[in-house]
């Protein structure tokens, strides 16, 4: 089970829960399973999101692999000038 931390405003859609464990082998599965567990959160799992897996930040990459012991952070998308 991946250890998932929700950053930013996402806790508002999980009744304050920011740390949880989710079974997922990639980002798409993670987002689907999170949405199932927290239906209100599903509306926030949009393009405005980055996912850090073991410290490496992924954007728009559904199939990035998540290991069974991975540390995963959901955070706002990163841009730049």
């Amino acid at each position: 089970m991946a250890k998932v931390t929700l950053t930013g405003n996402l806790r508002l859609y999980t009744a304050g829960v920011t740390e949880l464990e989710i079974k997922a082998s990639n980002i798409r599965e993670l987002l689907r399973n999170l949405g199932k567990e927290y239906p209100e959160l599903a509306t926030q799992l949009t393009d405005d999101l980055a996912v850090a897996i073991d410290g490496e930040i992924y954007q728009d990459d559904w199939f990035a692999a998540i290991g069974p012991d991975s540390e995963v952070h959901l955070m706002p998308r990163i841009g730049g000038g």
Binding site: D47, D48, D60, G79, G80, G81
Partner: peptide, 9 residues
């Protein structure tokens, strides 16, 4: 409708 641009959405 929010979409990614340079800085943020």
């Amino acid at each position: 409708e929010f979409v990614p641009a340079g800085e943020m959405m």
